[in-house]
Design a protein around this nucleic acid. Sequence first.
DNA 1: GACGATTTCTTCTAAATATACGAATAAATG
DNA 2: CATTTATTCGTATATTTAGAAGAAATCGTC
Lengths: 110, 110
Amino acid sequence: MVDVTDLTLIEQQTLLGIMRLHPNAYGVSIRDEIKLRTDKEYSFGSIYAILERLEDRGMIESRVGEATGSRGGRKKLYFTITGAGERALQASLNAMDAMRAGLKLKGAFA
Amino acid sequence: MVDVTDLTLIEQQTLLGIMRLHPNAYGVSIRDEIKLRTDKEYSFGSIYAILERLEDRGMIESRVGEATGSRGGRKKLYFTITGAGERALQASLNAMDAMRAGLKLKGAFA
DNA sequence: GACGATTTCTTCTAAATATACGAATAAATG
DNA sequence: CATTTATTCGTATATTTAGAAGAAATCGTC
């Protein structure tokens, strides 16, 4: 193991969230998106730790956003997925799909 | 968080492996099945630790197998997934599917 | 237009959990 | 008893957790 392209579940979800929200993915919105779709509420500590780690590994890039104009709010740190991130995500999803293939599960796919 | 029904990626893969191999799922065969399908080679330590944890949480059950008849070999510990395990697995997979839904990815599903 | 209140977003810290490896151990057969 | 297959163990590393603290922006009021 110890393969930088390996992704944990929450890393997969974070990458998917970033893609879904593009170009409006930042810490809080990513957390909200995951909560909305999976009903799982990660702490800020978790989300930001994962974002930092994914960026260190070259899976995502960040840029500091402009002032929003709306009440309050520190500047957002926007994230986008990189080519390497997309490839790693895809490989991870394919691996899961290979494990699922042909099994009778009531899930959406399968 | 801290929800016993939450599953990590490797836990999902292990449960899927157990279902696929039924009724011949035991430590070594599960590891081999995951390696075969995902090309990921987990150590024995990882696999058995996960099996123990899943059993503690009521997701799988084990029974000691009979002697095999073939050369060598300690008795196998066979695993089967429980109803709770299937439900947790399904919930996890549904959550991932919800994150993936509608995104254009070259993966098998999507 | 300065000030503090308010809002939104990010960072930090320490502890709990999970994963990784592979050597050691156990149990079966020829 | 040598060989084979399977499981357990010990220890190191990495990830995740939770929420309080901190930073940065706007609003309302004077």
